[in-house]
């Protein structure tokens, strides 16, 4: 199965003028796996996803999709190649209903002569089914998205990306704005998506969220890759260490210990 990776990133770098945003990052993404991209603020996570989503283009390195070298010149390129991105701020209209949000921009239509209208019953039914596949029973798809919880909203976005033929699903910090319980909901959706055969790229700064769901971990620090590990090769503590740049965190721990008297990093 793993002869050929779905998506292969080789030595990706991005420079903005003389600023190095990303340097020599490599990893692989497989269908039915969750690849976690971890890093603190400013580690280069957002540059990384913007390259994958086609918003920016890499300065060096190659991206291979199904073994073929590709270059995404626009978000539309990436989308048509099957790479869907669910951004942190979510592309949702809060006052609109679930089904309208689900199909926004790609509504199924019926037509009669010159008249074209939305096939509402089909749209509602599909939205309901797709949400059910994600494990959410939306009885009334007329419900406004704004009344859903943060986790449910993420779920709608994930279900939508899956339904519209995404092979690779990029989730940008889906848990950062959520409470513990809601984060759990989203993590469950990630697993659902993975089980449906999607390749999921999960960007987060929280190793506790990443470790339970991830199959592979790419750790970034200050634009540098700290390595790409399979789950069996790494523990959660090592992950945390690497994320913060190892030695730095240790130093911080000592500092804190000195300042408070009873240092307890982590």
């Amino acid at each position: 199965m793993a002869d050929q990776h779905l998506l292969e990133l080789d030595n990706i770098s991005k420079f903005y003028g003389n600023i190095i945003a990303l340097k020599g990052v490599s990893t692989v993404v497989n269908a039915g796996e969750v690849t976690c991209v971890l890093g603190d603020n400013g580690a280069g996570k957002s540059t990384f996803i913007k390259i994958l989503a086609g918003v920016h283009q890499q300065s060096e390195g190659t991206i291979r999709l199904n073994g073929e070298e590709v270059m995404f010149n626009s978000p539309r390129d990436a989308l048509s190649a099957g790479i869907a991105t669910v951004y942190q701020d979510l592309a949702m209209v809060p006052l609109m209903s679930v089904w309208r949000n689900f199909f926004l921009g790609a509504e199924p239509t019926k037509r009669l002569g010159p008249f074209k209208w939305i096939d509402q019953s089909t749209a509602k039914q599909i939205a309901k089914e797709e949400m059910a596949k994600m494990g959410i029973d939306i009885r009334d798809t007329e419900q406004a998205v704004g009344t859903l919880s943060g986790g449910e909203r993420q779920s709608v976005a994930i279900a939508r990306a899956g339904y519209f033929g995404a092979k690779v699903l990029i989730l940008d910090e889906p848990t950062s704005a959520l409470g513990v319980k809601q984060s759990g909901v989203v993590l469950k959706r990630i697993v659902e998506a993975r089980n449906q055969g999607l390749a999921v790229i999960f960007i987060t700064h929280n190793p506790r969220h990443a470790y339970p769901v991830g199959n592979r971990f790419l750790i970034l620090n200050r634009g540098q890759s700290m390595g790409s590990f399979a789950k069996e090769d790494i523990t959660i503590d090592e992950l945390t260490q690497l994320m913060a740049g190892g030695a730095e965190l240790e130093a911080l721990e000592h500092e804190l210990a000195a300042a408070t008297g009873n240092g307890n990093g982590d």
């Binding site: 959410i136 984060s183 909901v185 993590l187 697993v191 339970p212």
Partner: peptide
């Protein structure tokens, strides 16, 4: 279908 190591919270 939910993976064993996924977080809990039965939101259904």
């Amino acid at each position: 279908a939910v993976d064993a190591n996924s977080a809990t919270a039965n939101d259904a």
